[in-house]
Write a protein that binds this DNA or RNA. Sequence first.
DNA 1: ATCCGAATCTGGAACGTTCCAGATTCGTTT
DNA 2: AAACGAATCTGGAACGTTCCAGATTCGGAT
Lengths: 327, 327
Amino acid sequence: MDVAAAAGVSKSLVSLALRGGDGVSAATSARILAAAERLGYRSNALARGLVQGRTMILGVLLTDLANPYHTEVVAGVEESADARGLTVLMAHGRRDRARLTHQLDALLQLNVDGVVVVSSWVEPDALADAARRAPVVMVGRPERFTPGVDTIANDDRAGAEAAVRHLAGLGHERIAHLAGSRRPASRARQEGYREAMASLGLEGRVAVREVGDDPCGREGAAEALLAARPTGVFAVNDLAALAVLDQAHAEGIAVPDELSVVGYDNTSLADTVRPRLTSVDQPRLVMGGLAVEMVVERLSGRSEDRHEVLTPSLVIRASTARPATKG
Amino acid sequence: MDVAAAAGVSKSLVSLALRGGDGVSAATSARILAAAERLGYRSNALARGLVQGRTMILGVLLTDLANPYHTEVVAGVEESADARGLTVLMAHGRRDRARLTHQLDALLQLNVDGVVVVSSWVEPDALADAARRAPVVMVGRPERFTPGVDTIANDDRAGAEAAVRHLAGLGHERIAHLAGSRRPASRARQEGYREAMASLGLEGRVAVREVGDDPCGREGAAEALLAARPTGVFAVNDLAALAVLDQAHAEGIAVPDELSVVGYDNTSLADTVRPRLTSVDQPRLVMGGLAVEMVVERLSGRSEDRHEVLTPSLVIRASTARPATKG
DNA sequence: ATCCGAATCTGGAACGTTCCAGATTCGTTT
DNA sequence: AAACGAATCTGGAACGTTCCAGATTCGGAT
């Protein structure tokens, strides 16, 4: 190590001084720091990680960078990781299962101290494999639990119920649901909708239309949904809600005067579209923070799996109002 | 290495076989692969990076994860990196200069093979420092060039001019500009606007209003801008254009019938708001790809700095039309 | 049988750190 | 003056790979 020679001490002492360890005299320490500064020295994280067996890096695996839902979870992760001195590095799967597996592998090969998976798309085998090498916490609702992998999800049923009750509370009865794909979160939201309708004595008014996973299907589904002339719509997510808003606009239906719309996820979209969208909000920051906490718990010995379900809240904006009085 | 013992060969041969190198007999190779598979062996990227002096990791430094402009540049980076066998890892500065510097440092300590900085916010000193340790390419328009750091930007003047000429071509004369902050890109767009107006003989119609960097200022600025009753507005970016759309809606001004609006960046917003926004499109995928190319060039010896400026194009949507005929 | 070269395999050095056991220095106490 | 202990410093092992020079094996030509 050049710095050692420049400061006239051993490499061990340089290492110690740069880490701020004690047992180094003030004078020597100053000399070492000066030499390091002068030579533009930077410690090598590879070597450090190799010898220490840990890297202080928290890996975050993302399915979709462009998804504002994901990025806000990441914000929560970062905040919490910062507070614990962990550095966050992100790997991106780009909505592709194979790439997701590959990127997860890349993180593990780097010996990250833990992985937060923000996605429910990862191959369960890859996940199980990963959990054997490092703590893995998944934020999202998986098809089924993978042993060794902790999960954090929001209560989709409760969120759906809150949306429906909000509409019913305003006086709506013809409340339709624009449903999502077959994925667990979508299914749970649909179940929540049906249950809430039933418990409100509105089972006769249940009307569901599914949009596929492909974005193109959304408009058609919205059109079909509105054909039944509901006064309120609960959409599986904000993007689906946007399709409803657009379709309503195209048909000359005023929102919220003639139609109330509720979305899910409270993405930036909800605060962007006109009218601003009432939406179910998952506590994403909290979820991200909790994920880090769970990784740290694993690092300090917890071995039972933990599956946390958080309660979402409804953010009321301008897209919902009392239904127009008839006649 | 356990795999070596299990397969009854030396660690060197295991290493060779797993890398797919030749000089390993088919039988032995199969035995080694089987043993590795069985033991769940994964090579350690830290050790590999340490001995090879390169990591095959391309670091991406982001200012703002939530910014769809940034994420699409990243998509371009990823595509190009994939094709070259580089793994992309992202570090996130969260709009904070100190954190950006810190994250840049973290990437360098990991011995990444190169860094693509998607941001024009990074401390120039930190950038210069980084460039001494690895190739650094910045996507964005910096205050000034940092020696050793390549840059890729779009031609903001040309983009602004295209926007103004589009409006003028439709018959607009009262074309106002909602300008951005003092940052170089914003300034260049404003200059492009003024120049285009001048060269169209419309210097008398120039009307500029600046929004500060804080989001709250946008509405007020949009209101003030519309007070002058322009028939066309060129906004510094899509978010500013959205403020104009909202303000127009609030005042009962129909877009595009009574007011045409053009944004900049062609973010997902442009394809989300109503009416869909005409916007200047930077070739973000190309820019990302080019960034990787420039990193690779540096790795294979280029030493002169390269500063690339790409030409943006206009994407015409529903927010622009001929002005209403008077009377 | 002998030799030769190609194919296959091995052992140790190296990468840049941290860690640890011990060496050295120095001021204080006896 | 001797002894002691604390403070300060050093040297080598270790981490898990790759790399390289050389060792071993093997089939075939002489």
